Simulated scan of single mutants.
Amino acid sequence: MENKYAQKLIEKIQKEILQDKFELASIITDLKKIREYSLEEQNPVVTKSLRLAYEHLENNNAFLIGIPDDEPLESESESTKNVSEENDIESFEYFLSILFDLTKKNNLLDLKEYNKAFLAF
């Protein structure tokens, strides 16, 4: 994200997580605000990813999507391995970190994998 306000909100969420403060309502509110900034930047992958992320958090009260695999998945049935039964803080931290720097091609690819996992959940 290029918007400095969006970056500050991402950093705020990251700091709270480092302090073991996973306050769902606050995170969802911040993700919605970051999504508004992404709409201005006209990046549909990021905008969709943010919406899917906060909807996932609202529906499950946790982040249950794992970090995308480095290797492309062979079949749809394997994508279910990318689901956690507990709040996956590490994956959520990674999700936030790739939002921060979208100039790296792999970050955008990983966001697309997150989107697929959210939709398959």
Rank of each mutant, 00 (worst) to 15 (best):
M1N: 09
M1E: 04
M1R: 03
E2D: 13
N3R: 11
N3H: 15
K4W: 00
K4R: 10
K4D: 05
K4N: 07
Y5Q: 13
Y5V: 12
Y5K: 15
A6V: 09
A6H: 03
Q7G: 03
L9E: 06
I10L: 15
K12H: 13
K12D: 13
K12T: 10
I13E: 08
Q14S: 15
K15F: 12
K15N: 14
K15Q: 14
E16S: 14
I17M: 07
I17P: 11
L18V: 04
L18D: 15
Q19P: 01
D20N: 13
K21R: 12
K21P: 01
F22Q: 06
A25I: 04
S26T: 08
S26N: 13
I27L: 10
I27D: 14
T29W: 09
L31V: 11
K32D: 10
K33H: 09
I34C: 11
I34T: 07
R35A: 12
R35F: 02
R35G: 03
E36R: 13
E36I: 01
S38L: 06
E41C: 03
Q42G: 01
Q42N: 15
Q42E: 11
Q42F: 13
N43P: 00
P44F: 11
V45D: 15
V46F: 03
T47M: 08
T47R: 06
T47N: 14
S49R: 05
S49K: 04
S49C: 14
L50C: 09
L50D: 06
R51W: 10
R51V: 07
R51Y: 12
R51F: 12
A53K: 02
E55F: 11
H56V: 03
E58K: 15
E58Y: 09
N59F: 06
N59P: 02
N59S: 14
N61I: 02
N61G: 08
A62F: 00
F63Y: 06
F63R: 02
F63I: 01
L64D: 00
L64G: 00
I65D: 02
G66A: 12
G66Q: 12
I67F: 15
I67W: 05
D69S: 11
P72F: 14
P72K: 14
P72L: 13
L73W: 03
L73Q: 05
E74N: 14
S75P: 06
S75N: 13
E76D: 01
S77L: 11
S77M: 06
S77I: 11
E78H: 08
T80M: 05
K81M: 11
K81I: 08
N82G: 05
N82D: 08
V83N: 10
E86T: 09
N87W: 05
N87V: 04
D88C: 01
D88G: 00
S91C: 10
F92V: 01
F92R: 05
F92Y: 06
E93C: 09
Y94T: 09
L96A: 05
L96Y: 04
S97C: 03
S97T: 12
I98F: 12
I98P: 04
L99A: 00
D101L: 02
L102R: 12
L102H: 05
T103N: 13
T103H: 07
T103W: 02
T103E: 13
T103L: 06
K104M: 02
K104A: 03
K105L: 03
K105Q: 08
N106W: 04
N106D: 12
N106I: 08
N107A: 08
D110S: 07
K116D: 02
A117H: 07
L119C: 01
